[in-house]
Amino acid sequence: MTVIIPGIVVFDIDGTLTDSVAQHQSAFETALRTFCFPSLRTDWGNYTHHTDSAIFEQAWEEAQYEGRADLSELEFQYRRALEHEITISPFTEIKGASAFLQWLKEHSWSVVFATGSLRFGAVKKLEAVGVDAEKVDLITASEFRTREEIVQKAIHLGSKKIPGGHADSLISIGDGLWDLKTANNLNLPFIGIGRDVKAKLLTDLGAPVFEDFTHLMNNGIGLFR
């Protein structure tokens, strides 16, 4: 019997599935400062690409350091810093996230995860919503520099679970402007997760926004029918 897969849902992680932005940014900045950049910009949204690896490489270029940026050393320093952060403030899920992931699984959606975070952080964040990163399709900034590359690769992996390899429906879910911009660049329908100022930034650009996944399941589940 052929299983009908409605389509692919692409999830951002930080601020979307998990309340982890503060811990991630603190650990990331701590890791970057081990490289002694003479003038490190921490306005992450103003870098050309909003991923950890791309920010690191741009900071390296702006510092006019010789050679290639050492991503493996950044990964090592980030891991140490993040482990410290989450002992103080563990990751928690955005309300209803794990329940919504389970609903998608029960309704045969192909779920993939695409994040601008380094892989170690993504793995730890997924644990907070009961997801084993070894058993899902997860693409991170450890593999690609741009959000578009990350999302495209995630979709490619997700499509392998669909008969014929073509998804009739593709939906991107995120919490930030970079998520929306990436979805627009790739011509993907987008759903925002957030409230207050964050929600207004997305709704002002025409995106449907739900304050959390409980709200989405109560008011927007028809988008997944």
Rank of each mutant, 00 (worst) to 15 (best):
E148F: 00
V151I: 15
H166V: 15
A141W: 02
S110W: 01
K181F: 04
W178L: 03
W103G: 09
A141H: 02
L180E: 05
K105S: 14
N185G: 08
S108L: 00
T140E: 01
T87M: 13
S98M: 11
A97S: 14
D196M: 08
V197P: 00
D137E: 13
E143H: 10
R195N: 14
A199C: 11
A199V: 09
S142N: 08
L170N: 03
I150Q: 00
G165R: 06
K135M: 12
I171S: 00
D132E: 12
A133E: 09
V131I: 15
G96W: 10
F113I: 06
D212C: 14
S172H: 11
T115F: 08
S117H: 00
I193C: 07
L138C: 06
L202A: 03
V197Y: 13
L138T: 02
E143C: 05
N185D: 15
I150T: 01
V123R: 09
K181H: 12
V131H: 02
I88R: 15
I171T: 08
K181A: 08
A141C: 09
G206T: 09
I162V: 12
P163V: 07
G116C: 08
S117M: 04
K135L: 11
T203N: 08
W178R: 03
D137P: 01
K181W: 00
W103F: 14
D137A: 15
P163A: 13
A97Y: 04
L180K: 07
E127D: 13
I150S: 01
L118S: 11
K135V: 02
R195P: 00
D204H: 10
N184R: 14
I191H: 01
T115I: 12
D168T: 13
F144Y: 15
K95C: 06
T140Q: 01
S159A: 15
D204L: 11
E211F: 03
D132W: 03
T87S: 13
R119E: 15
V136S: 05
V111K: 09
D132N: 15
W109S: 03
K160C: 05
S110R: 07
F91A: 02
F190E: 04
L186A: 08
I94S: 06
L205N: 12
T146K: 11
S169H: 13
K105R: 13
R147K: 11
D204V: 04
T214K: 14
S98A: 14
W178H: 15
V123I: 14
P90V: 13
I155S: 01
